[in-house]
């Protein structure tokens, strides 16, 4: 089976006035479908940069990236957008819901950029809202929801396009421990149902829930351990 993502000797450099910053120095990584990977490491080690590359928000300076069967490294800006709309799910630390849209509309945003919403997909957005426990809040605005509820909406949104993998950048960073646990349980359930999840975190407890921990140090992978199958 083709892995969800493969990265080969990817580097990322930022050229600034003061010189070049090497955010990633030749990272190779393979994410099989169904995996649950925690990316850990100190601040500034390149976690977010790696996640941005995997999420097709940015292109590597050198090296290759394959999503499914598609080569991403040389893709156009519009193609990257299409890939994000159809194959990638995002969960952010600060939820990042669109304030003027309702819960249901927020969940449907990626569909909108795929071009069309049919009745089956609308059905699916309802189901996903149910799945994350917000079936009775469909018309609510993000500001009317608690942080945990907002993050649930974001999780439902990340599932709507049935992505290759879900990228979560510190998804529990803004939540209290009880709510964090709920969210992590939800992610765990999703992984058990077969969803591929890549999560960036600096909290060891979060890392323990994943099947595999990738540690970054100064732009390179310093360890890549599978903790459970």
């Amino acid at each position: 089976m083709t892995p969800a993502a493969r990265m080969l000797e990817a580097t990322k450099q930022y050229v600034m006035d003061g010189g070049t910053v090497h955010a990633l120095r030749g990272v190779s990584l393979e994410i099989p479908t169904g995996d649950y990977v925690a990316i850990m490491g100190p601040s500034g080690s390149g976690k977010s940069t790696l996640l941005n590359l995997l999420g097709c928000l940015d292109r590597p300076t050198s090296g290759r990236l394959m999503l499914g069967d598609e080569e991403i490294s040389g893709a156009s800006d519009d193609r990257l957008s299409e890939i994000r709309a159809s194959h990638i799910g995002f969960i952010f630390q600060s939820y990042n819901l669109i304030p003027q849209l309702s819960v249901l509309e927020n969940i449907e945003v990626p569909l909108y950029y795929q071009g069309r919403i049919d009745r089956r997909q609308r059905q699916r957005s309802h189901e996903l809202a149910e799945l994350v426990g917000l079936g009775d809040r469909l018309k609510h605005r993000p500001t009317q929801l608690s942080g945990g509820q907002q993050q649930r909406v974001a999780i439902a949104r990340s599932l709507i396009n049935d992505p290759y993998f879900i990228l979560a950048d510190e998804p529990t960073g803004n939540l209290d421990s009880v709510t964090s646990e709920e969210i992590l349980r939800l992610l765990n359930d999703l992984n058990e149902q077969g969803k591929t999840i890549i999560i960036v975190t600096h909290e060891p407890e979060v890392g323990k829930l994943a099947k595999r921990v990738v540690r970054l140090q100064d732009g390179s992978i310093c360890s890549d351990k599978r903790t459970r199958e």
């Binding site: 928000l57 299409e82 709309a85 669109i98 950029y113 396009n161």
Partner: peptide
Amino acid sequence: GIRRALGAKRGD
């Protein structure tokens, strides 16, 4: 930023 991340092209 959110819309772009979720798949909006520049044209959108």
